[in-house]
Design a binder for these strands. Structure first.
Lengths: 178, 178
DNA sequence: CGTCCTCCTCTACAGATGTAGAAGACTCTA
DNA sequence: TAGAGTCTTCTACATCTGTAGAGGAGGACG
């Protein structure tokens, strides 16, 4: 579908050049479509932004939901996969920052990782799951950010490798302790 | 100094409108200066970006360095102060994302929180300070991000209050445990 | 075959943006 | 006070950007 093709090109553009690089014509070029295509499918720039964010949100639906027998391991693998899909994750951060001054985006991003994390915390028998879930979320977000754009991006193991998953798993285990 | 005044206006702009809002003329207006001023002090846009990032980096110099008698508390207070200075922190995140596709920025941001955190970890007698420092950094970054733009921004206590510091301190204490 | 409808491509244009340089205002020294 | 040097403001212009609408290609359906 043309619409998704365009949204995907937009995601790559945002990841590689930032929100500033996201223009109708740049998306046309990136997607190899004739000039005017993006403008036809997303008439305004706001529509274009919401379009790529919606696409991001859709593709994230499945990922979560850890295996109860290996919670830390499955979380670690999920985070590692986000590191591998670098562009999507970078675009997601750009979108979150954008949502700060463009609130509609918040509702588009169906990101309920907090409830997810709370559920996990509950599952593990924490006494204050509400709060423990918040802390867990914070830690996981931080781990991802640290390895993707923070200091850990230059030092840590290469995403997608066994070593990367092992490193992440050790960190997650620590965070899961009651 | 005009230069700093301009850089400060740029920081606010980036925080409030994103990198896309950062244009020479917009900075002029924001700073209440006549049109052309920003362009005179930072001829190219690249110079403007590097200028505001350098200003951010300069102002961060003092903040860190926790009190050894109350490590968790002082870290919590530092994080809370970053939440209060919302614009500066938002601009810093925008800059970190920007540094992804504009590497010069990385060297401008003298951000060595990793070494800081490693030092703290050592101080507390962790067995693997290198790794523990990385985890601590990740957790602190995550805590900040979570409360500033993540799910915690809508749920958590108001930054700058006693409650906020208490909440943060509890989280930090947990992260500091060996 | 003709007609309608949808999808796609092209072109237009007002306004914004990056960047440069000219000219004026100001400051300090001799 | 005169002059040199710097700081500040203004203006210009090529290019990019957002947005709109006209028209064409191609298929579906009668």
């Amino acid at each position: 579908m043309r619409r998704d093709l365009i949204a995907d090109a937009a995601i790559d553009l945002v990841a590689e050049q930032g929100m500033r690089g996201l223009t109708h014509r740049a998306v046309d070029r990136r997607a190899g479509l004739p000039e005017g295509s993006t403008s036809a499918y997303f008439r305004t720039r706001k529509a274009l932004v919401e379009g790529f964010v919606a696409r991001l949100a859709n593709q994230e639906q499945q990922d979560i939901a850890p295996d109860p027998d290996d919670v830390a391991g499955s979380i670690a693998r999920t985070i590692d996969s986000w590191l591998v899909e670098r562009n999507r994750t970078l675009a997601r951060y750009a979108a979150m920052l954008e949502a700060t001054h463009h609130p509609e985006l918040k509702s588009i991003m169906a990101h309920s990782p907090r409830e997810q994390a709370t559920a996990i915390a509950k599952m593990l028998g924490h006494e204050d799951p509400e709060r423990a879930g918040a802390h867990l979320t914070a830690f996981l977000e931080g781990l991802l950010f640290y390895r993707l754009v923070g200091a850990g991006s230059t030092v840590g193991p290469t995403p997608g490798t066994e070593e990367s998953v092992r490193d992440l798993k050790a960190a997650v285990e620590k965070a899961l302790r009651p």
